[in-house]
């Protein structure tokens, strides 16, 4: 564990907490893409499938973190699609999730470290996570704006994988550890946030709201 991965995971936890708080406090999921949250839930379940297969006692923080990620993302989907369904902006959340899931699954079968079920599921989860934020970014571009709290959520969510890139540089240099699939997908994922990061740093930090040129 190094400082970059630690802050990366904390940033990821913060993102999940910010989104839950936003939906719970405002009792609304306006401006939040339900599809992105579903894709994240699928990512966590397929990536941490080992939790279900051979359930080992919760002996370390890693297992606890995995359970937190899975339960929080499933709970977020429950809030969006059931509890606060009336506030779900379905017609703006219109990116076809199949266009993300099918290519990720296909690519996972073609490019992977080892052709076995667990490894393919993990690879699928990595590829899917790289593009999972697209429906959310698409929704913001359609509505033309993002609530400030949603911007903070996106900033934390984007920072998590950006910090993981620093973690991979660190591990390459000090532990000669390389996981090409995770690195390439992580770089693609972070690149997708670039224009949002620019808007966030130039606008939200100055207290303005993000309004996209419609």
């Amino acid at each position: 564990m190094n400082i970059f991965r630690l802050f990366g995971d904390l940033s990821h936890l913060a993102a999940i907490a910010i989104l839950l708080l936003k939906i719970w406090k405002t009792r609304s999921c306006a401006g939040v893409s339900g599809k992105t949250q579903l894709l994240f839930a699928v990512c966590f379940i397929t990536r941490y499938i080992d939790l279900f297969l051979h359930f080992v006692s919760l002996y370390n923080t890693e297992k606890v973190m995995k359970l937190i990620y899975i339960s929080a993302s499933v709970f977020t989907c429950y809030l969006i699609f059931f509890k606060f369904k009336a506030t779900y902006d379905g017609n703006h959340d219109s990116m076809r999730a199949e266009f993300l899931i099918v290519p990720a699954a296909g690519l996972a079968c073609l490019i992977n470290t080892k052709f076995d079920a667990i490894e393919i599921l993990w690879t699928f989860s990595i590829y899917l996570e790289a593009v999972a934020i697209l429906p959310q970014l698409f929704l913001i571009s359609k509505t033309g704006e993002a609530e400030t709290i949603t911007s903070h959520y996106l900033f934390a969510q984007g920072s998590y994988r950006a910090l993981y890139i620093l973690n991979w540089i660190y591990r390459y240099h000090y532990e000669s550890h390389v996981d090409t699939i995770a690195i390439v997908a992580g770089v693609v994922q972070t690149i997708l946030y670039c224009d949002f990061f620019y808007l966030y740093i130039t606008k939200v930090v100055k207290g303005q709201k993000i309004v996209l040129p419609a």
């Binding site: 890693e62 995995k66 990620y69 080892k114 993990w122 390389v178 996981d179």
Partner: peptide
């Protein structure tokens, strides 16, 4: 560089 197949990252 050694490839650690064990997934030790979240």
């Amino acid at each position: 560089t050694k490839y650690t197949l064990r997934k030790d990252e979240l």
